[in-house]
Every structure is written in C-alpha cells, then in structure tokens.
C-alpha cells in the first residue's frame, strides 16, 4: 500500500479537525477540565502526607510543582484514539478515509492534535491561576527545559502510537476499550500518575523504569523538575526512543494485519 507523501493533506485535515473541534468547544473543555481534577487530588493527598517534612525526599513544594506540570503534560499526552479511531473502524466510518490517498492514521493524528490545541487554549487561564495561587518551585534550568521539550515530544508520540495500537484492535473486537483499560491501569500505577516514579518501591520502580508507561507521562516531568541525574536522563531518552520505534513497528504491523480483516460490519 502506498500513499502520497507530503504534508498538505494532513495539514488540511488538521485545519478541518480544528474547525470541527471548535464546534464542540464546551464539551472539549469539560473533558479536559476533568483531566485537571485528578492531579489536584494527588497533589492534595501527597502534600498532606508530606506535611512539613518530606516523602522520599519530596517536599510539599515538589509535589505542587510535579502535579502542576503533570496537568499540562497529561493533557498533551492523553491518547484519545480508543474513543475516536476505534469507533471509526468498528462502525465503518474508516471507509471514506481509505478511499483517499492519505494514510488514515493522519486523521487520528489530526483529531488528537486538534483536541489538545483547542482544549489547551481553554485550560491555560485555569493553569495560570493555579500557578499564581500555589507559586511552585520548579527548579528548571534552560537545559532541563530543552530536554523536557524533547522528552515531551517523545511522550506525545509514544502515547499516540499506544492509543492507535489499541484502537486498531477494533478490527477484531468490538471491545477494544477493555484492553485499553489495562494500559491505563498500568499508567496509573507505573507511569507517574498516582505517585512520582521515584517514590515507587523496589520491583515496582524497576518495572516503571523499563515499561513504556513512564515515558508517556512521568518522565518529561522528572526531566523538567531536574529530578534525574544526567546519565538517567540520557538513558530515559534512549529508552523512550526505543519504545517509540517499537510502537511504530507494532502499529504498522497491526494495521497491515487489521486492514485485511476490515470487513462488512457497517463498512
């Protein structure tokens, strides 16, 4: 299968998806706002646990900085493909896209980016207000900001590929969402969501360092907040790149197998 190279098609799709997403700005905002609630809860709980002291070397102000960054990172790395691309496959809405000389994954990417772009515009004022009220100490440096941007790009890509990979299961099953819940559960535990990865004990910490979930969420935050020595940042970036490459290969293979399986159900 070959598709035309060039970004004119994907960019036009992105513009149309942005326009479409703006039609649903209130719903988009409410979804995104819900994504802000979780980190506020985690922040409150860990701050209470830390009290005037610390937990594993993290003080109240560290948790505040961590979860304030988490709000932005988790929004930018959220994978929505299971709710957008999956149903397209399941209900046959993929067909019109298969008739165009552009890979349908671009449609999923355009929807992903437009959701984030529209919602982030609405979330920035809330985040700024929280920032001004909580006054966190980030401890970020120009180098950590640059590395953060790099790791964030990797996290966005990895989470998109993971979301797409699970969404592609809709070629075989009408319940691809259930398997995605397993990924989400692992991200909750090992991705730096319920607790920063550095607080995870023993085997859990080792698992978190090796599995891909941390590289879709917690890792960029740790990089920005200077919580990792240079060697671990380099190793983390290498592991993240490896997971991105592996995920890209898996998505390509699953797509190739799935498209042969795309059948009549509403197609």
């Amino acid at each position: 299968m070959t598709f035309r190279l060039g970004l004119a098609g994907p960019l036009a799709m992105l513009r149309a998806e942005m326009a479409d997403m703006l039609q649903y700005r209130v719903v988009v905002f409410l979804y995104a706002l819900w994504g802000f609630i979780h980190p506020i809860v985690y922040m409150a709980v860990w701050s209470a646990v830390a009290g005037e002291g610390d937990v594993g070397g993290l003080r109240q102000s560290d948790f505040t900085a961590y979860y304030l960054t988490f709000m932005i990172v988790s929004h930018l790395t959220v994978a929505i493909e299971i709710y957008t691309f999956g149903p397209m496959i399941q209900y046959g809405r993929l067909s019109p896209h298969l008739l165009r000389p552009m890979h349908p994954v671009w449609v999923a990417a355009a929807r992903n980016l437009s959701y984030k772009a529209v919602a982030v515009l609405l979330l920035i004022p809330i985040w700024t207000a929280l920032f001004l009220v909580l006054r966190p100490e980030f401890g970020a440096t120009p180098a950590s900001i640059a590395l953060f941007m790099l790791s964030l790009a990797g996290a966005v890509l990895l989470s998109f590929l993971a979301g797409t990979g699970f969404a592609l299961l809709a070629f075989w099953t009408t319940r691809s969402g259930s398997s995605w819940e397993i990924w989400m559960g692992l991200t909750f535990l090992l991705g730096g969501q319920v607790a920063p990865v550095e607080l995870l004990p023993g085997v859990m910490g080792q698992l978190a360092a090796a599995l891909p979930m941390r590289y879709t969420l917690g890792f960029p935050i740790e990089v920005l907040l200077n919580r990792l020595p240079p060697g671990e940042v380099a190793l983390g970036l290498a592991l993240q790149a490896g997971w991105v490459a592996a995920a890209a290969v898996i998505v390509a293979l699953v797509w190739r197998a799935g498209i042969r399986h795309y059948e009549a159900v509403g197609a």
């Binding site: 098609g9 149309a16 326009a19 165009r100």
Partner: peptide, 19 residues
C-alpha cells in the same frame, strides 16, 4: 463530509489530499 462543518471545508481537505 464533516457533519458539523460546511461542505466547502471537506472539499478543501479533498483538494489537498488529492493534490
């Protein structure tokens, strides 16, 4: 066609995709 957008927007997408 994009359901919530004018059809002209979908036409623009096809224009770009088909070059």
């Amino acid at each position: 066609l994009f359901w919530d957008l004018p059809a002209g927007d979908s036409f623009q997408v096809n224009k770009a995709v088909f070059g």
